[in-house]
Structure formats: structure tokens, C-alpha cells
């Protein structure tokens, strides 16, 4: 593995410029100042929508409707939070999101690790067919309607299965895991097999314990995907108590756009929604934002694993 560690990659880049620095030309000095300014601007533009939504979530309706809320809350209050959090449906949907995420991630991990392990064995007969079966689905899939018909036909509508099964294997994650398994030293498994362990024993007692890092990364990839997903639930669930929180939020937003799109730009319902929407968005995104700084490097290393020369 050449660049499995993103920090190391970063360090290399950071280490190079000084060796290249003979004497900066006037023009390059100017460029460096401009560059830092531009990148600070990028940071500001990326963060602004989040800051804005947090400010709105603590603001009064009146301040938002009169267009006073940008970076700082106006008419500070936590009433909206109390309002949203007192909606029992919100909590039911939030719990659904947690349940769907946990179950879906567990299923996805079982299917992905077992398949990846099998196709990482270079002398397995039929290996290239198995890889082909998976990779082809990256470039061609059945499409919305046949999938919809299928899920209905399987009787999965309004059940957990419609959410957790149809996307249980991400081919990208599969290929990352396969690359990881391929890079494990073959000697370990050979030694284990001489000691009398079967393939199952090797897989569970040797390979999986050695793969904790990649497993953690994959769990994160899947968990974030399922936490954020909404369309599957939107399509296959039509009872509000089954919705994940993303669909709860979507319906709220859709309600607001519909009323403005009817031409009623001063519609009260839409304005109240702006206030509540902000709180719902903050509460939905909060777990991801809180965990993000700690988890970010694992995500990056996952992508790096995929680009590693095997």
C-alpha cells in the first residue's frame, strides 16, 4: 500500500515546496497572498450555509421574514427547538433513522466482507466472473420503474426491508475491501491453514481481526450513506410513523416550496416553516457534524485505499 495513510501523503506535499524554494519571484509572492485569500473565501463560502441555518434556528419568525438573519441569530429564542422536539413524530422518525442505519449497515457489512474475501482469492475459479457480475452493475442498472415494481411484488413496501436490502452492497466499498484483503500477507493464512483452520476459521479468526481499520472505514461509509438516504424511504414507505427523519424533513421543505410556488410569496405557512425547517435541519445534521472532525480521516483513507496499487 503506497498511500493508505492520507496524513503521510499530505506530509509529503507539505514537505516538497521548501526544497523547490530557491527565491520566490515577485509575482509568486503576490500569488501566494492571493491564494491564501481565495482559500479563506472558499472556507467561508462552504461554511456560510451552515452558520446561516444555525442562526435561523435560534431566531424569531419575524426576524427571518424581514430578512435580518444572516450570521447571527436575531430575536434569540429556543422556542422553535422546544416546538420541534415536542413533536412525537419527529422522535419516532429519528429513531427509525437510527434503526434503519444500524440494520442496513450490519447487513451491508456481512454481504460486502464475505464477497470481497472470496473474490480477493486470486486462484478461485470463476473469480473474474464474480468480479464482472459486481462491476457491471456500476455502469448499468435496471432503473427506477423495474425496481419499484420488484419491491412492490416482493411485498416489501412499508417494511424495513425496502430500505435496508436494495442497496446492501456498494460495489465501490466491495472493491476497496477486496484490495485490502489482497494486500494481507498470504503467509499468515497459509500458516493458519497448516495449523488446521478451515477457510471459515481463517476468515473469522485471522482475516477479520487484521482488517479492523478497513472494516471501521466501511462501516462509516455505509452508516453515513444510510443515515443520509431518503429516496428509498420516500418511494416505498407511505405511513408517516415509518419515515426516517430525512423524509420528515423533505416533507416539511416540500410543503414550504409548494406554498411559495403557488405564487403566495408572503404565505404565512411557508414563513413559519422556514423557522422550523432550520431547527429540523440542524437536529438532523448534528450527529454528522459532531462526529465529522474525528471521522474525516477514515473517510479519506477509504478513498485512498481504493486508489492504491495492488
Amino acid at each position: 500500500m503506497t498511500v493508505a495513510d492520507p496524513d503521510r501523503a499530505t506530509r509529503r506535499v507539505a514537505a516538497t515546496p521548501p526544497t523547490r524554494r530557491v527565491k520566490d519571484s515577485r509575482g509568486y509572492q503576490v500569488f501566494r497572498v492571493v491564494n491564501v485569500t481565495v482559500l479563506l473565501l472558499v472556507v467561508g463560502l462552504v461554511l456560510y450555509p451552515f452558520v446561516n441555518i444555525v442562526a435561523q434556528s435560534f431566531s424569531s419568525e419575524g426576524a427571518i421574514t424581514s430578512g435580518q438573519v444572516n450570521l447571527v441569530p436575531r430575536g434569540f429564542n429556543v422556542e422553535t427547538y422546544r416546538l420541534v422536539m415536542s413533536d412525537s413524530l419527529f422522535w419516532v422518525n429519528y429513531r427509525n433513522t437510527v434503526v434503519y442505519t444500524v440494520v442496513a449497515t450490519a447487513i451491508a457489512m456481512v454481504l460486502t466482507t464475505t464477497f470481497a474475501y472470496a473474490i480477493s482469492k486470486k486462484d478461485l475459479k470463476g473469480r473474474s466472473v464474480l468480479i464482472g457480475v459486481a462491476v457491471f452493475t456500476m455502469f448499468f442498472n435496471g432503473g427506477l420503474i423495474p425496481n419499484y415494481v420488484l419491491i412492490n411484488e416482493l411485498g416489501m413496501t412499508n417494511t424495513l426491508w425496502a430500505i435496508v436490502l436494495p442497496n446492501a452492497i456498494s460495489v465501490f466499498n466491495l472493491l476497496v475491501m477486496k484490495a485490502f484483503f489482497e494486500n494481507l500477507p498470504a503467509e499468515l493464512e497459509e500458516a493458519a491453514s497448516i495449523d488446521g483452520l478451515t477457510t471459515y476459521g481463517i476468515f473469522f479468526r485471522i482475516v477479520l481481526p487484521l482488517s479492523k481499520a478497513v472494516i471501521a472505514t466501511m462501516v462509516l461509509f455505509y452508516a453515513v450513506f444510510f443515515w443520509n438516504s431518503w429516496f428509498q424511504a420516500f418511494l416505498y414507505l407511505d405511513r408517516a410513523e415509518l419515515y426516517p427523519v430525512t423524509v420528515y424533513l423533505r416533507n416539511m421543505i416540500a410543503g414550504a416550496t409548494t406554498s411559495t410556488s403557488m405564487g403566495a410569496s408572503a404565505d404565512d405557512a411557508a414563513q413559519v416553516a422556514a423557522n422550523i425547517q432550520a431547527v429540523t435541519m440542524v437536529l438532523t445534521v448534528l450527529p454528522i457534524i459532531c462526529l465529522y472532525p474525528f471521522l474525516q480521516k477514515y473517510f479519506v483513507s477509504g478513498v485512498m485505499l481504493g486508489s492504491v496499487k495492488g
Partner: peptide
């Protein structure tokens, strides 16, 4: 071809697929 079976990997973005 649409979202119903939008594969899990789509959340990971283009970079990831290229990597894969």
C-alpha cells in the same frame, strides 16, 4: 438510470468510483 436503486456507492462521489 434513476434513483430507485441508486447504488450505495453514489454517496461517495465520483472520486471514489474512479478509485474503485
Amino acid at each position: 438510470s434513476g434513483g430507485a436503486s441508486g447504488s450505495t456507492g453514489s454517496a461517495l462521489g465520483g472520486a471514489s468510483e474512479a478509485a474503485a
